[in-house]
């Protein structure tokens, strides 16, 4: 298996006027091509920092982060630009890369079409529902054809009903595009319903305390929730997270 992302003994310290915060220390893990990895951890433990390191937005204070290929970032809120149409939003990463060629553009638009956004391409984000907006945000992330998706609690701003649907949606899209994904969440059931592998982080400074491969045959997150293993995993992870 090809390795896309590797953290080796990574540490990260925030420096401010008031002092320093050790956000991450001795963190090691790797993500392989095609995997869906979820990372759960208590709030404030350094999850967002971890993703920034993975995306190369921060340089580690110690240790090493290796990454092969490009990252696509998706945040808690959709962060669509309100002054751009959905189409223009989706094409943003291509614009930034300066390669808004016809071929790329068509790829992005075909993604939008495939995943039910074609009616909304000329609409502004304010005209879409929360779930639709998050879907548009995902298509935007996919438009640049990233090798690994970094998802920072992308569903936590949605209400429960929408959240289940969008989760299912996103899982479906990511799996059918055969993307590698690293999902950060503090929702245990979300992690179990989506991931192939779950890593549990300690409280700050974050390091990996447990790692599990979930052997679900079922890719659909809603159906996973009905399986017997689901609650077993839930109890185990809950104990590890709070233990």
């Amino acid at each position: 298996m090809e390795e896309i992302l590797r953290f080796t003994d990574v540490g990260y310290i925030y420096h401010t006027k008031r002092g320093e915060t050790v956000a991450i220390k001795g963190l090691s893990f790797s993500v392989e091509k095609g995997e869906f990895v979820a990372i759960i951890g208590p709030s404030g433990c350094g999850k967002t920092t971890l993703l920034s390191l993975a995306a190369g937005l921060l340089a580690p204070s110690e240790g090493e982060v290796t990454r092969s290929g490009r990252c696509g970032y998706m945040l808690q809120k959709d962060e669509l630009f309100p002054w751009r149409t959905i189409e223009k939003n989706i094409l943003l990463p291509l614009e930034i890369k300066g390669k808004l060629q016809q071929e790329q553009k068509e790829h992005a638009c075909s993604l939008a079409e495939k995943y039910g956004l074609s009616d909304y391409l000329q609409s502004y984000p304010s005209e879409l529902s929360g779930g639709m907006r998050q879907r548009a945000a995902l298509i935007r992330t996919l438009a640049a054809d990233p090798d690994v998706l970094l998802l920072d609690e992308p569903f936590s701003a949605l209400d429960y009903q929408t959240r289940l649907n969008v989760t299912k949606d996103v899982a479906h899209i990511i799996r059918s595009e055969q993307k590698t994904a690293l999902l950060i969440t503090h929702d245990i059931s979300e992690a179990i319903s989506l991931a192939d592998r779950v890593l549990v982080l300690s409280s700050r400074p974050a390091r990996v305390t447990h790692a599990h491969s979930l052997q679900f045959e079922e890719p659909d997150p809603l159906k996973r929730r009905e399986k017997g293993e689901f609650s077993e995993w839930f109890e185990l992870l809950w104990r590890e997270l709070n233990g």
């Binding site: 937005l57 970032y73 990463p93």
Partner: peptide, 8 residues
């Protein structure tokens, strides 16, 4: 952050 992650 989003723009920087796109390499802007």
């Amino acid at each position: 952050l989003l723009l920087r992650s796109m390499g802007a």
